[in-house]
C-alpha cells in the first residue's frame, strides 16, 4: 500500500510563519512538502502530530501554489495547541476535500458576502478568487461582523478591497469602543445599508451557526431565492471523505457533499444550524 493511495495518511507541511490576527485568531503560513492545490471553499484536515486533527478552509488564494495559509481561531483543545506552535514545526495535511464555491455560476452577477468571526477565513480565499475574476463579476460586497474592534481580523484587507474597482467592504462590531467609526450591531444590520440588485445577485454566508441562521433568514426576507444563498456549513468532522459519518446532516455528508451548499439544498434537512 503506497502513501499516495492512502486516504488517511497526511502529507507534511512546515510552519513558516505565524501571523497574529486578533487575540484569539492566528494565521499559520504552511509550506507543503508535496505539491498541493485547492479550489476556494474546499477544506483540509490539519494534523497536529499525535494530538489531533481538525478541518480548516485555507484562507489563502488558490492561485498561490507553494504556500497554504490557514487562519485558526482558538476554540478548544486542538486549535489551542495549534496556537502555540513554533515556526519550523511540522504539521500533517490531508485534502483538499469537499465541494467549494461554484465560482463560474457567480459570473455576470453581484456577490453579497456576509461573514462573521473566523468565517472570514474561507471568505478571504473566496475574495482573492473573485478579485482574479473581477472582469466577469458585476459587483462584490463584503459585510463582516465581529464582536469587538479587537476581534476584527485581516485589517488591511478592508482598505485593499475598497481600493479595488467593483469591490466594497463593510464592517460591524457588536460592541464598539471610542475609536470605532463603522457600523455597530450584529452583522445582519449591514444588510439594510447595502445596495444589491437582488434578482441578479448571489449571497454567500460564512460564520458561526447563529449568524448563518439569522443571516440566511434576513437574506430570504430581502428577497434572495434559496438557490442563490451559498452557505458554508460547519459540522463535526473526522475523516473528511464521506465515510466516518460525523458530519451527517440528514442525507448529506457535509464533508463531501459540501461544505458549501445552497440553502435550497439543505433547507429540508433536519438540524442544519
Amino acid at each position: 500500500m503506497t502513501v499516495s493511495t492512502n486516504i488517511y495518511k497526511p502529507f507534511r507541511a512546515r510552519l513558516e510563519k505565524v501571523i497574529e490576527e486578533s487575540p484569539l485568531i492566528k494565521t499559520l503560513v504552511l509550506v507543503p512538502e508535496t505539491e498541493f492545490s485547492f479550489k476556494t471553499g474546499e477544506f483540509i484536515e490539519l494534523t497536529l502530530d499525535g494530538i489531533g486533527e481538525a478541518p480548516f478552509t485555507p484562507s489563502s488564494s488558490p492561485f498561490v501554489k507553494d504556500r497554504i495559509e490557514v487562519t485558526i481561531m482558538k476554540a478548544g483543545y486542538v486549535t489551542g495547541l495549534m496556537h502555540e506552535l513554533p515556526v519550523g514545526a511540522v504539521l500533517g495535511v490531508r485534502g483538499p476535500f469537499g465541494r467549494g464555491y461554484p465560482i463560474e455560476t457567480f459570473f455576470g452577477k453581484e456577490v453579497l458576502i456576509l461573514g462573521g468571526g473566523c468565517g472570514l477565513a474561507p471568505i478571504r480565499s473566496l475574495l482573492y478568487t473573485l478579485i482574479e475574476y473581477k472582469d466577469k463579476l458585476k459587483k462584490v460586497i463584503l459585510a463582516y461582523g465581529s464582536k469587538t474592534p479587537r476581534d476584527c481580523i485581516y485589517k488591511p484587507l478592508f482598505s485593499y478591497l475598497n481600493s479595488i474597482d467593483k469591490f466594497e467592504a463593510h464592517r460591524s462590531v457588536d460592541i464598539a469602543d471610542e475609536n470605532w467609526k463603522e457600523t455597530v450591531g450584529v452583522a445582519t444590520v449591514m444588510l439594510d445599508k447595502v445596495k444589491v440588485d437582488i434578482p441578479n445577485a448571489v449571497a454567500v454566508v460564512c460564520g458561526p451557526p447563529v449568524m448563518m441562521k439569522f443571516g440566511t433568514f434576513k437574506l430570504l426576507e430581502m428577497g434572495f431565492a434559496p438557490k442563490d444563498i451559498f452557505l458554508s456549513m460547519e459540522k463535526n468532522m473526522s475523516c473528511g471523505l464521506g465515510k466516518c459519518g460525523h458530519c451527517m446532516m440528514g442525507e448529506y455528508f457535509v464533508c463531501k457533499d459540501g461544505p458549501v451548499f445552497t440553502y435550497e439544498e439543505v433547507k429540508n434537512q433536519p438540524h442544519i444550524w
Partner: peptide
Amino acid sequence: TCFLLIDRPGFEKVR
C-alpha cells in the same frame, strides 16, 4: 459504518 480517526505519534491514525 461510522468511525473516528484517532491520532498517534508519527502522523499515524487509528480508525
